[in-house]
Nucleic acid binder design. Structure first.
Lengths: 339, 339
DNA sequence: TTGAAAGCGCTAACAT
DNA sequence: ATGTTAGCGCTTTCAA
């Protein structure tokens, strides 16, 4: 009763020809008579035959699947990256398997195992915050599986990479704060083992220096979640030097900081201006809306897939390359008008 | 040079035995001597042999893959559902393929095609807003592929379903508004072709009725995006009867409505109280934080997978079942204290 | 206790 | 122009 999928054999039997003839007809092989081709194509359409990708994979030695490891899908940036990955991968004939590391080293290691044993043709990774040992990724390259890091990259392994121009983005964001009159700017920073966090901090520092504003250690505070903001931000306003600007490593932290600042009685942006990083949905939800550095996640995702597929399908070994995606400051209501 | 994956043949050759013996040894077949088993297992461990899932799939006629179609991954609710799906599917030995419909009918149809031609063993779907023709899903069931709808379900096709108790959730949310003193409550509603939208509206209506508050047509407004809120909400306060409560079909709309209400000069929750639906990240970002109906997306995802795998692996045809996941009102700052 | 052979769906080299 | 055969990695009768 179970009407299984139509196979090439079914077509062949019905037409009284051999399976290989059907196969050739389907790919327009020059040997096959046009009459046969026509007959095959008609029946294929009628019976809605679709080649079995599993059989193709077994034959071709390729799973036509790309593995992706991201920290957390709930974050706007990663969900846009995933959209980019999905779109280009599907258009290129690849499937995608996602794994979330949930910012846990163990889960990241397990995800790599899962993907390897699934025989994916290549892997895209954005590191989780706490990863400091990269042997599981070396395992990938040793198996000759192409690997591309994006956004949160690993600089201890030689691979293709896609990064956002974090330093320049941070520089632009902080410069904007300075131009709008801020002089005492706090940086709510991420963990510095992550390059993205370090680069954003570097951009912050450069913007201050180029404007002859002293860089003071106590103005750089590790704080990259809403929870941390709740414990860290209130204290920043208890000192004698009152901050008049905040540059946060991500929008979520910026949004929470804004709430706290307002509750302290300061006006945003008049007393305190705030700039975030990502410019996602969150930036429209805060009140006022949040000036933020757009990261173009969708493009990051597409570019990462492009590099990966190049590598998968590339005949020879090209040197590894790093693509840098330009950021863009999106000015909204949490910073004062300039000029 | 390309050191391919280790196969069962490699193991057999090395040990001077046949592939079939290796295969049996690996599954602890009683025929095989324990000496052979031991030797096989040692070499397998040493060479890190992993069975090729593609070959297994071809043999077993199952891809061990579940297909998932969601409207948009960026939304908190769906991203939590996906986490639930991922976790249980992987634990059960299944892979997951995601497709986003992006609220487009055409993309939804295409996603079904993609998944079918990938030979997934079963499909999970949450409908896109605009879908009114369900032939592409009938196509799935006609191919005898198990299908489970979750959240945004289709009641024209007989399948297993997982839904959230939207009516009860809405009832509880609106009842809470009433208990806190609201009498003129606006419902910002979704498109009524979606059952979830209709059920939430029904809950709203029942809450009013049970409290002897007149249900007035003009207080039910189609509005389920931030953009729509911007065009619709301001007008609600220009009438003679001023609203003192808002129940929104989702958090995003609720958040935007809150911004607008505050800009109009009303205090939240004192003049106007607001209740959303989903209780995700957004509910902590608004100021005040948003009282909202928690949907337990992670559990929805797990339950959907459980039903699907049951169906995939089930010997016989059980009757279709619908699981209802209880909602939970999470009271935060956008509603007044009761009592 | 082990091995040989067939087959899952498809393709490609090699007949015919 | 079409068919036969072998093989991708694995399992599973059946035979030895």
């Amino acid at each position: 009763m179970h009407k299984a999928q139509v196979t090439i054999k079914d077509i062949a039997r019905e037409l009284g020809i051999s399976p290989s003839t059907v196969s050739k007809a389907l790919k327009g092989h020059p040997d096959i008579s046009s009459a046969t081709k026509k007959a095959v194509k008609e029946l294929v359409a009628k019976w809605n035959y679709k080649p079995d990708p599993i059989a193709l994979s077994l034959k071709g030695g390729q799973s036509k699947t790309i593995g992706v490891i991201v920290p957390e899908i709930v974050h706007y940036f990663f969900s846009t990256v995933i959209s980019g990955i999905e779109d280009l991968a599907y258009d290129s004939g690849y499937h995608v398997m996602f794994c979330q590391s949930n910012e846990s080293y163990e889960r990241e290691v397990k995800a790599v195992e899962t993907l390897l044993s699934s025989r994916v043709d290549g892997i895209l990774v954005s590191l989780c915050k706490v990863t400091r040992n990269f042997d599981h990724f070396r395992n990938i390259t040793e198996n000759r599986i192409p690997l591309v890091f994006f956004d949160r990259i690993c600089d201890e392994i030689e691979t293709d990479r896609v990064i956002v121009d974090d330093e320049a983005g941070a520089f632009e964001g902080v410069s904007h704060l300075i131009k709008s009159g801020c002089r005492e700017i706090i940086h709510l920073s991420g963990p510095l083992n992550l390059l993205i966090a370090k680069n954003r901090m570097d951009g912050y520092v450069r913007a201050l220096k180029e404007n002859n504003i002293p860089v003071r250690e106590e103005n750089i505070v590790k704080c990259d979640t809403a929870e941390e903001a709740r414990s860290v931000v209130p204290g920043l306003f208890d000192k004698t030097r009152k901050p008049d600007g905040i540059f946060a490593v991500n929008d979520l932290t910026a949004a929470e900081a804004m709430k706290i600042v307002k509750h302290k009685g300061y006006k945003v942006p008049d007393n305190v201006s705030i700039v975030g990083f990502t410019s996602g949905m969150i930036s429209d939800l805060t009140d006022p809306s949040l000036t933020s550095v757009e990261q173009h996640g969708y493009i990051v995702g597409k570019e990462a897939v492009r590099l990966l597929i190049n590598r998968i399908e590339g005949k020879e070994d090209l040197p590894c390359q790093t693509t840098i995606i330009k950021t863009e400051l999106v000015v909204k209501g949490s910073t004062r008008k300039i000029g």
